[in-house]
Design a protein around this nucleic acid. Structure first.
Lengths: 204, 204
DNA sequence: TTAGTTATGTACTGATTGGTACGAAACTAG
DNA sequence: CTAGTTTCGTACCAATCAGTACATAACTAA
């Protein structure tokens, strides 16, 4: 019943174009003109469809976390805590060094950029990171309960260790470090990962 | 013989004020007005004394690396490779979580910010990081030659591992993570550090 | 005092920022 | 064809950006 002139662009495709720009340039470093040029729409269309720059960033962040960044959630499904850790690390490397996407991580850029204007992006990113962190701690807690991690380790410390590494990987990748070098970093880091006390994870 | 009106401010003190602002807000997030307000000088004085925003950032970067960030160079003087690693990690934690300074690291912020305007800052920071990285690799190379690291380890991989962690620490600190948690991260990371093959470092 | 030199403060520049007003265009329902 | 609705495109807004012109103030050397 509504009718009206049909929009001449695909919103999801436009979000992908916007993601590419925010990912490469950060929130503060990206202007409305950068966005509308990449999205191939004009300014009023952008505002009508997505609200404003801040809300657009929120939509883009969603798309990032359910798209290129979805490995982090999927990593939690790995059978052992060590596999979770490995998937997180190698996933972060793939994400941040992919040849067809910008180097680095949208979320890490978001936490770092923080002039007066970048504040809202920072808020959004930090909130999502906290959700992800909580899920990781919960997963490692379960691993310890299942005997997959030693009883005397602290799952939240291990989670923090992993996130510190994935963040560092993003910074290194943005600085030009290659995937091969980062894989050897991940390999080294995994040597610090605790092994279950006596038996493997119980089959029951 | 020169004469002329004496300047009414202390350039080094002004640089320290500028450092505080760049450190907290990044290069792109900082405006000339932010800077001149903090430095308590007016715009023409700033341009006369420091050139422009980009050159000012370079001067500030010098001051950062020879001041708060000097721990990284000093860490190389530690007697063993493990001590170098520990000093780098704990120094990074102190730097990025200091109660009287902004959270995070000026250099990490510099690599991450990169709109069109932030490009020069990015260039400068990446160049300095490369110098520091080379010095660290050289130090670990020497450690291996001295038998302080096993012969089959790769010093450049270990250096990259350390830098990835210090970068990650900076990101975590900027995101609000506390020093205590980060110290446990460092402790975990050091478990991955290789130990010399048979004897300790030779006394000769 | 006078000439030369350097710094300071005000007031400005053109360009760009995020965000909008408004009329024309393109559709649906009747 | 007409009325209602939604989008599109141009052209604009005030605010702010980095950077500067210029007159005046404060100093040294003679």
């Amino acid at each position: 019943m509504p009718g009206g002139r049909p929009r001449a662009f695909d919103p999801d495709a436009a979000l992908d174009r916007a993601l590419e720009v925010f990912w490469r340039q950060g929130y503060e470093g990206t202007t409305l003109s950068d966005l509308t040029t990449a999205m191939e729409i004009n300014r009023p269309s952008m505002y009508a469809a997505f609200g404003n720059k801040e809300e657009l960033f929120g939509r883009v962040l969603d798309r990032y976390l359910t798209g290129p960044g979805a490995f982090a959630e999927r990593a939690l499904d790995a059978p052992t805590a060590r596999d979770v850790a490995a998937r997180m690390l190698y996933g972060a490397i793939r994400l941040t060094t992919g040849p067809d996407t910008p180097r680095g991580c949208l979320c890490v850029r978001g936490t770092q950029a923080c002039g007066e204007e970048g504040r809202p992006a920072r808020r959004q990113v930090i909130a999502r990171r906290a959700v992800g962190a909580a899920a990781l701690v919960e997963r490692l807690d379960r691993a310890r309960a299942e005997g997959d991690l030693p009883a005397d380790c602290d799952p939240s410390d291990l989670a923090r260790f992993l996130m510190t590494l994935t963040d560092g990987i993003a910074v290194q990748a943005a600085g030009g470090c290659g995937a091969d070098e980062l894989r050897r970093v991940a390999e080294t880091a995994l040597r610090a990962w605790p092994t279950p006390a006596s038996p493997g994870p119980p089959a029951s």
